[in-house]
Computed example of a mutant assay.
Amino acid sequence: MSQSKKEMMNRALSAMTMNIGKAGVNDNVIEEIKRQLKANEIVKLKFAKNIAKNKDDYIADIVQKTRSKLIDVRGNVAVIYKKKP
């Protein structure tokens, strides 16, 4: 694991966690993720068990719409990053 990825994962331990529920991802969820990324750079997304089978599609959609980078996925939790402007 590269030094920067280790550093990101350490920062992710204290990052804001957003729960993605059974409703999935909609425009309001995307806007909230954008706000959190702007404030914190790193956001953890925790997917509800009943939508976890589709999480890869949701993650791809979120990363594309927020212009962020996927750092890691473990179980039903994804960590994304976007550098502050």
Score class of each variant (00 low, 15 high):
17 T>N: 13
76 N>F: 03
63 V>L: 11
46 K>I: 09
29 V>L: 13
15 A>T: 03
34 K>R: 05
24 G>L: 13
14 S>E: 07
28 N>K: 15
50 N>R: 00
66 T>Y: 03
75 G>W: 10
10 N>D: 09
56 D>M: 07
78 A>G: 05
7 E>Y: 02
15 A>L: 08
31 E>T: 15
13 L>F: 07
77 V>F: 00
33 I>W: 06
35 R>C: 02
63 V>Q: 09
50 N>M: 05
75 G>R: 07
41 E>M: 03
3 Q>L: 15
53 K>H: 10
71 I>P: 00
72 D>E: 01
81 Y>E: 15
5 K>E: 12
12 A>K: 09
40 N>I: 02
54 N>R: 06
34 K>N: 02
37 L>R: 01
48 A>W: 07
14 S>W: 04
80 I>D: 00
82 K>V: 11
30 I>R: 04
47 F>T: 12
19 N>F: 15
13 L>M: 04
28 N>A: 15
82 K>F: 09
62 I>D: 00
30 I>T: 08
13 L>I: 10
64 Q>P: 04
6 K>N: 11
8 M>R: 07
33 I>M: 04
5 K>F: 07
52 A>I: 03
74 R>Q: 09
37 L>P: 00
44 K>V: 08
5 K>Q: 13
81 Y>S: 13
69 K>S: 15
65 K>P: 04
